[in-house]
Simulated assay, not measured.
Amino acid sequence: MNDSSDSPDKIIGGNSSGTSGPEKVIGSEYSKQNNSEKVLSGDEKPERAAEPRPSQSEPEPSFESIETLISNSTGNGALKAIPADFENKNGSWSSILSDNPFDNLYLDYKQFKTISDEMVSGNYEILTKFWKEKFLSLNGVAREKIKIRYGESTINDALKKLDLAQQRIKTASGRLLYFEEREKNAGKTGSNLLRNCLKWLLMREVWPSGLHVHSLIKE
């Protein structure tokens, strides 16, 4: 009979009751199988893989409409600095694309009575500085990025539009004149919309109630 002390390893059955089960290896074979693993003490914690850094992206665009942002800015006494969302592709800088000189200068035309000459000139200076910087960037290393964000034609035309807008509404009389023009045009647009809707109704000839609508529109 062999002495158990002559064998470096000892096999222990998985179940003492005689049923089959996984066997456990102890002794030198256990060390060989696990020599590549690091043994941790009770106080040590396994090392965690370094988490990837979040990629830098543009500031989140505002959920407020451009009209709301401009209205709030005007109500608060006009711009003190360039709005943060001007660095977003879909930011409120797009007010420069409007045909409304108030929009171009980030002012709400509906508040023309409270807009002062100083508010107009202040916004003009802040916005002019911003667009001058973007214009100069077209010759820099960030050229393509700037073109994608704002559009090259937008940058080239921005300063001219600001100059024109400032000339149109720099005085109280100029602001009043544009407001009246705007309201007059808005009235025409509303009338044309109503007229087109009624013409569409005429395609049905008769309403379900039997009421003829031809008389509602005079050609």
Rank of each mutant, 00 (worst) to 15 (best):
K134E: 09
E219W: 12
V120I: 14
P22F: 09
L201A: 02
L79K: 03
N88W: 08
N34F: 12
G27D: 06
E64C: 10
L79D: 04
P59R: 07
F179C: 00
G77V: 01
P46N: 04
L127G: 01
L194K: 06
D6T: 12
I155H: 06
L162S: 07
G91M: 09
I115H: 01
W207V: 03
L201P: 01
N72T: 12
A186M: 05
K45V: 14
G174T: 02
Q111W: 03
E183A: 07
A50V: 11
Q33C: 04
M203A: 07
E118F: 00
F179Q: 02
S92N: 12
Y178P: 13
S98T: 13
M1E: 15
P52C: 13
I217P: 01
P8K: 14
L176C: 00
L176R: 10
S173M: 07
S73G: 06
K132E: 14
G75A: 09
E180N: 05
L107P: 13
A158W: 09
A49D: 10
I82W: 12
T189P: 01
E51F: 02
D3R: 01
S98Q: 09
L193C: 01
K161W: 11
S73I: 13
I115G: 04
E64M: 13
G77W: 08
P61R: 09
G13H: 02
C197T: 05
P83L: 14
G151Q: 07
R182C: 04
L193R: 10
G91H: 12
F86I: 04
V213A: 10
P208G: 08
Q166C: 03
D108H: 07
S55A: 11
R168N: 11
A50H: 02
Y106R: 03
S65N: 12
S94W: 07
E205L: 07
L79Q: 06
N192M: 05
L107F: 09
P208N: 11
K24M: 13
N15Y: 03
D85F: 15
S191Y: 12
Y178L: 13
L211Q: 11
K89N: 05
H212F: 09
S209T: 12
S28D: 06
D3W: 00
E44Y: 00
W207F: 01
F63Y: 05
I155E: 00
E118D: 15
G190A: 15
R168A: 15
P59E: 05
E64Q: 14
P101Q: 06
R195M: 10
G13E: 01
I115Q: 07
E118S: 15
L127R: 09
N15D: 07
S173H: 00
F130V: 03
K160M: 14
I11V: 15
S17I: 02
P83H: 15
I169F: 10
R204C: 04
E219R: 14
I70E: 13
S71C: 05
F63I: 00
L107G: 10
I148N: 10
G174H: 00
M1K: 08
L40T: 09
P208A: 10
Q166P: 00
V120K: 08
A165D: 10
S94Q: 14
R143Y: 03
P101G: 09
I70W: 04
L97A: 13
L105G: 13
K132D: 11
S31M: 04
K147L: 10
P46H: 04
S41P: 00
I66W: 06
